[in-house]
């Protein structure tokens, strides 16, 4: 390993002073090194990670539901196989992320419990129904497309297990977005009714993708009032100082809009925002700022679909209890190689 230098390891006896530990931690983050599970880390860093990874994991498994509802109604065996693979990946992403969260000392069962009891949330994006087959395409193209833009920088996030999980997730998301775009293109090249169905789905999924997948505005340029922007900016700054996030929400949102506009043009679809226009001076597309307060109010936890998502998740969990019990009983009986040894 040529050129490998001992980065910032303390050269004296192991540090026990909190200040030294913090300095060591900060130096690792500043040097772009990863923090690993057994490293010392500030409590705030651990809490922010648990909250973000858990929210992310919950979103992956709740996000299976709108598309999963179309598995039995896919228009061809090919589309059905693809959709099964895609929904299965989302379950896998949840599992990668719950594993990553567990390295921070939290228990997966406790996280699921918090989701079921409404103490932790999944992204409100998925509290929308998938009304037609075209919705499965619009969800994959737009919300998975937003996820890729959001998540690509997370492959370099400062916490090692999270970064490694995200690298696996991102590899699979690329397939999700492409199959969604392919599905939309098939509809756009089909009958007028099929194209209208595609346009209708885009009309309904554009705002959830552009608003909810990136979180609240955290810059005034992003359209937030000064107070909201300041609050958002403070959280984002903290997350960036710790190397958890790499960009502001609004920066990523702009990147998403810039990538989607030409894609929609190629499909011959219209994104439902009359303000979308190329801005020569900025070198970006303008779009309507997100009216976050109004939007969030319309999407409270008390909407029919928000309750439905959690109820479905709980039912699946409870219906599967006998499988978990049977697996534990089987393991306990097989000469102790699997079960909990006393």
């Amino acid at each position: 390993m040529p050129g490998r230098c001992p980065v910032t390891a303390p050269t004296t006896a192991p540090a026990v002073d909190e200040g030294d530990l913090l300095a060591h931690f900060d130096a690792l983050v500043a040097a772009g090194e990863t923090i690993e599970p057994r490293d010392w880390m500030p409590d705030g860093y651990r809490r922010m990670l648990v909250r973000q990874i858990a929210q992310h994991a919950h979103s992956e498994i709740i996000g299976m539901q709108p598309e999963g509802a179309w598995l039995t109604r896919a228009p061809s065996l090919h589309r059905k196989s693809v959709l099964i693979a895609k929904v299965q990946d989302e379950a896998g992403h949840g599992l990668y992320l719950y594993s990553a969260a567990e390295t921070l000392g939290v228990d997966r069962a406790a996280l699921l419990d918090a989701l079921h009891r409404g103490q932790q949330r999944a992204s409100a994006t998925f509290n929308h129904p998938a009304l037609t087959w075209a919705d499965t395409g619009a969800i994959a193209w737009l919300t998975d497309g937003a996820a890729v833009i959001n998540q690509a920088p997370l492959c370099r996030t400062s916490y090692g297990p999270y970064a490694r999980a995200m690298r696996r997730v991102c590899q699979e998301e690329a397939f999700h977005v492409r199959q969604g775009y392919d599905l939309m293109r098939a509809l756009c090249e089909g009958t007028p009714e099929q194209k209208a169905m595609a346009q209708d789905a885009v009309n309904r999924w554009w705002l959830p993708a552009v608003a909810l997948m990136f979180g609240p505005p955290d810059t005034e340029a992003g359209g937030a009032d000064a107070r909201t922007a300041a609050l958002g900016a403070a959280v984002s700054r903290r997350a960036m100082a710790w190397g958890i996030k790499r960009h502001t929400n609004d920066e990523l949102r702009q990147r998403f809009v810039d990538s989607c506009v030409p894609q929609a043009e190629r499909l011959g679809l219209t994104l439902p925002d009359p303000a979308i226009r190329w801005n020569e001076e900025r070198g970006h597309y303008d779009f309507t700022p997100i009216d976050w307060d109004t939007y969030r109010e319309a999407l409270g936890d008390d909407t029919h679909w928000a309750r439905q998502r959690i109820a479905h998740r709980r039912a699946a969990h409870e219906d599967g209890a006998w499988v978990r019990e049977a697996a534990a009983a089987y393991a306990a009986r097989t000469d102790g190689t699997g079960g909990e040894d006393e």
Binding site: A85, Q88, D89, G92, L95, Y96, S99, E102, R108, R164, A165, R168, R324, A327, A328, Y330, A331, A332, T334, T337, G338, G339
Partner: peptide, 22 residues
């Protein structure tokens, strides 16, 4: 490549297959 939760070795292998070798 990561970790899984499972009651025993057979279940762990099956979970690992489903999760990491698709």
């Amino acid at each position: 490549v990561g970790s899984v939760r499972a009651a025993g070795p057979d279940a762990a292998l099956a979970a690992a297959r489903d999760l990491y070798t698709r």
